[in-house]
């Protein structure tokens, strides 16, 4: 599809007169995978329609990096719901420019689904896009937030923080063995002490997979 044929798709989103027609229009627009759709997909995040928002997030994640700057630029103007969806999009895209937003969301968002998505996103950031000087402090920020996330009152956020820590551990450069040790110590504690068996089990899996990776 070329960019001229996207206008009807955008108009279909703007003109949708029911939840079902909006969802169908957003799905069609997201499937087009064109950068020209980004402003409309971002606008949908604020429509208070969860189905359409999920489709818009999927579309933005598929578009990846070009969506990051527009998402960040609009962030301050978002209402709470839109901001939560934007966090999910940034977590899915994995661009390190979203780091501060993800750290902030994991530490202080009141919705557990947002903290959960942020924790997962912090483990899958594309660190190779950072310069060596930026890498160390940025990973330190992610590490602190994830370690704190393993103390979250909600089991699913702790689970996601374990997944995030596993991802971060695998991405640490060899010069950061101190941080790897910090992660391993925290995983060992969770493996024995978390009150939810599911969180313990995910921790065992993280330990096993990190072991395989380092051997």
């Amino acid at each position: 599809m070329n960019s001229s044929s996207i206008h009807p798709l955008i108009q279909a989103v703007d003109g949708a007169d029911s939840g079902a027609s909006l969802l169908a229009a957003v799905e069609a627009l997201a499937a087009a995978r064109l950068e020209a759709s980004i402003p409309t997909l971002i606008a949908v995040l604020g429509y208070n329609n969860p189905g359409a928002a999920v489709a818009a997030v999927d579309g933005l994640v598929a578009l990846g990096e070009p969506a990051v700057r527009p998402l960040l630029d609009k962030l301050d103007g978002y209402n709470y719901g839109a901001r939560a969806w934007a966090v999910r999009a940034l977590a899915g895209i994995g661009d390190p420019r979203g780091l501060d937003i993800l750290v902030d969301a994991l530490q202080s968002d009141f919705a557990m689904s947002v903290r959960r998505a942020a924790a997962r996103g912090l483990g899958t950031l594309h660190w190779h896009r950072l310069s060596p000087e930026e890498l160390e402090p940025s990973q330190g920020q992610a590490l602190d937030a994830l370690l704190q996330g393993t103390q979250d009152p909600e089991w699913i956020v702790r689970y996601a923080a374990v997944v995030g820590l596993q991802g971060l551990a695998a991405a640490l450069p060899e010069t950061q063995s101190q941080r790897l040790t910090e992660i391993q110590i925290q995983l060992q504690t969770l493996a024995q002490e978390d009150e939810h068996l599911t969180v313990q089990a995910r921790t065992w899996l993280a330990q096993q997979q990190l072991q395989i990776a380092t051997n």
């Binding site: 998505a117 997944v163 089990a201």
Partner: peptide
């Protein structure tokens, strides 16, 4: 514990995708 069956790991893989 800490042994994990193949099925348990598959369930966790599905969970990871939904976070």
């Amino acid at each position: 514990p800490p042994q994990l069956s193949k099925a348990a790991i598959q369930v966790m893989d599905l969970m990871d995708e939904l976070l």
